[in-house]
Nucleic acid binder design. Sequence first.
DNA 1: CATGAATGAGTTTTCATTCAT
DNA 2: GATGAATGAAAACTCATTCAT
Lengths: 196, 196, 196, 196
Amino acid sequence: MGRKPIREQRRRQILEALYRCLLRKPYRETTMKDIGAEAGINHAMLHYYFRSKEDILLCFIENVYDRYRSLFAREVGGRPVKGASGRELLGKAFRFMNDRITTDKGLQTIFVEIWEIALYNPEVNARVKRIYTDWIRELGGIMQTAGAGPATSDRLAMSLVAFQEGIGLFSVFFDLNKGETMALMDYFQEKIVEML
Amino acid sequence: MGRKPIREQRRRQILEALYRCLLRKPYRETTMKDIGAEAGINHAMLHYYFRSKEDILLCFIENVYDRYRSLFAREVGGRPVKGASGRELLGKAFRFMNDRITTDKGLQTIFVEIWEIALYNPEVNARVKRIYTDWIRELGGIMQTAGAGPATSDRLAMSLVAFQEGIGLFSVFFDLNKGETMALMDYFQEKIVEML
Amino acid sequence: MGRKPIREQRRRQILEALYRCLLRKPYRETTMKDIGAEAGINHAMLHYYFRSKEDILLCFIENVYDRYRSLFAREVGGRPVKGASGRELLGKAFRFMNDRITTDKGLQTIFVEIWEIALYNPEVNARVKRIYTDWIRELGGIMQTAGAGPATSDRLAMSLVAFQEGIGLFSVFFDLNKGETMALMDYFQEKIVEML
Amino acid sequence: MGRKPIREQRRRQILEALYRCLLRKPYRETTMKDIGAEAGINHAMLHYYFRSKEDILLCFIENVYDRYRSLFAREVGGRPVKGASGRELLGKAFRFMNDRITTDKGLQTIFVEIWEIALYNPEVNARVKRIYTDWIRELGGIMQTAGAGPATSDRLAMSLVAFQEGIGLFSVFFDLNKGETMALMDYFQEKIVEML
DNA sequence: CATGAATGAGTTTTCATTCAT
DNA sequence: GATGAATGAAAACTCATTCAT
């Protein structure tokens, strides 16, 4: 009885459609119809699977965040893996940031979009703030394992993430290629390692 | 001074109104009526003084840019002023960035807004790109006067501006106070000076 | 009793669900999903048991009418029961009206709803008209047994039912309690008895 | 400069259009487009002259009320006019009710509509309640001038208005002609006069 | 019988832009 | 120049009904 529950798949389809839409148009100019078309789904169905357009966005943000968290856990490992020194861990974290985040122009583009929305949308704001807070805390923790004092590591982590976001922004605007972007990041990151 | 033709005066009023509007709402939610009301001008007149809503935005960006260029010229001096050593000039430039730009939350908010629009709007994009290019070039030039080689100065300038934008973004999101923001900037800027 | 075919059971469930829904929302804001949820039945099934939303309403009205007819038959007796004088019968009828109808705020609320729908929906209109016609005729008949001439009894019955509906309406709007409502009814009804 | 301010005229046009619309369709099935078409005005303009569809309705109710209040003042006179005995005044009031309200089928139709909306819409409810309260108070006042004690007059006035509304409702449903409707009203009203 | 999925038409509302005076 | 009025296109969201399993 009843159809195969296809709910989760459809929701994913829609979230992925939003991702692709945001690569072409700002969120506010992306209509429900656009998202539906991109997902190959009647636009009325979007309201069946999500409460509202904003709900889609919120889930989308959550989704992106989760994806990267688990990617990070897989590639870097949240806690210092046995045998890996703090420095090695920090190196891995930097590589992750550079490789998976800062040089992913699509992702950066979407993040600029999300920052902007977060300026005046409290729900989005809360989520964005949490993402950055988590990220900074995570990085700070790793820096401590690599030998930094608590006060320094906090400030350094925040600076580093800010720097990363700035570079990400520029890589989009100046259409930097991966090499250029990484060079900018590397240089700074090396300095940081030296400071520890 | 000679009284300005009313046209210029009105245009300025409108651009200033947009500034205030953008402190409250995103551009795309700001209506022509909002801008008109804020400027104390009938909204139909906005089309008399500007071609379109986008035209207002474009002029607005130009305007902001000009304002800061001339402020910079006044406070720092575009060219190494006779008698000022390169290092001193760089210090002044840093102080300008920190004081007038990065710690001005309103300005930073508006910049986040503009970045986002620039992502998908070619006209805005061109203007924003030019602003950052100029700014990086300017800073690079000063760094050279302060002793950096041309290659290093370019990269450093870009990194510094990226960093600045990242910190500006965070100062908005985490609602950092002036002191906190400046501390983050200073720390990095000192390192840069050391590197020269 | 023999267990009722499930179909009838389900239909009843749905009609009762509509009753409860109408206590919370107007018919036109009540969705099929609402009714389904209230009945504990998948909303698509409503179309299996009824032709359409309107069909549910139509059956609902019939249902309410039948319920009150049989209640009336039980409590008052449709025909002058042997041994009961006309006046006694009329008294019972009045008591029924006051007790079971006019002071039942839920029922009155739903009736206001139904009047309104009947204004523009011919099917509903026909049913509502029949209900009032029957009711007036019934009451008129009783009045005749109580001694009124045919012409007087018709007019009196209609007036009385009109009055009853008016008071029912007010009891909802002014949130009159049972005592207040009955006092208003009683007073008028006594006058009527005197007129016979 | 500027156009002739046509605001009030347009608002009236729209309100009148709503009146005509409500004679054909329930409020909830009346679309803004319907009202616009009926008024001969682009439907987007309705939002220029009124905040929302509900705002139109609210103003409409207010408007109807005002119209009848001033009509009443003109035809009956709010206060016992010098030389007019209480009985005469009461007679005039009854004539007004019968002539202008209860036998106006369009008005009664619209009132049924409004009652229904008032059931679940607090704003409309408040206005409707106020209208009836005022009306009952007014009538009660006149009854006192005609000799009734305060307690009796209150109850009588409420009963009379309830009766009136009931008859109005029936005149719509049974499509009574003016004569029939008035006969029903008159009979009861005479009784009332006798009771004073 | 039952159910989640799908559709299509429709509703209110918004807004940049233009018009008429 | 200035202003209120007008337009038309579009957006988010809703829902009765039907479909597929």
